[in-house]
């Protein structure tokens, strides 16, 4: 019994040592931008949850759609009610991995090019995405930035016929998160 307890403690120690350090934030930023003849659309969300496991490269983002803030109140209303239907689909999530995590020294200050792939779920539709980003390690924190376009049609976000063609079908997404260690 005593031997079993010692073995269990040793196994737990080995397991915890092999687990990567986890970095998280709850105040990450996602912006989106689209320029088109009818309307320039710009919004920001400062309540983005992000978590990174430096051992596995696993990366998670969670966003509440109602937290996107627009300059114009009417645009914010249309975004929530007609486009992303945030009452039905309140969250957007990304579950993925830094493909080249093994090449990054998360303990050494520096800037690294990264490739991230995973599943992005928006408006109830899940799509595989593979994007490039930049990751900076500094003062025990990890800052990640990525800019990439998405197509509204990929996520079944419908633009009303009357204004189709006047609102851009492609939206540029900018993700910026600064994560701190939780281990």
């Amino acid at each position: 019994m005593k031997l079993n307890s010692i073995l269990l403690i040793v196994m737990l120690l080995i397991a915890s040592a092999s687990m990567g350090q986890k970095y998280v934030t709850k105040t990450g930023t996602i912006k989106f931008y689209s320029d088109a003849p009818l309307e320039k659309i710009e919004a920001i969300n400062n309540q983005v949850n992000a978590a990174l496991d430096t051992e596995t490269g696993d990366l998670v983002f969670r966003v509440l759609m109602k937290s996107f803030i627009f300059e114009k109140a009417l645009m914010q209303e249309h975004f929530n009610e007609n486009y992303v239907e945030s009452d039905i689909y309140p969250n957007a999530t990304f579950l993925g991995k830094i493909i080249n995590a093994g090449e990054i020294d998360f303990k050494k200050a520096g800037t690294y090019k990264t490739q991230v792939e995973g599943k992005l779920t928006l408006h109830g539709v899940t799509k595989s995405v593979k994007e490039n980003g930049t990751l900076s390690v500094s003062d025990g924190k990890i800052m990640a930035i990525s800019v990439f376009p998405i197509l509204l049609s990929d996520y079944e976000v419908k633009i009303p016929g009357a204004i189709a063609g006047k609102i851009s079908e492609s939206i540029d997404i900018t993700v910026e998160v600064t994560m701190s260690s939780v281990n």
Binding site: K26, N49, R62, L64, S67, P90, N91
Partner: peptide
Amino acid sequence: CSGYNDTDVILE
């Protein structure tokens, strides 16, 4: 209230 993001309830 912006909702619950599976970790926190967010009020803005």
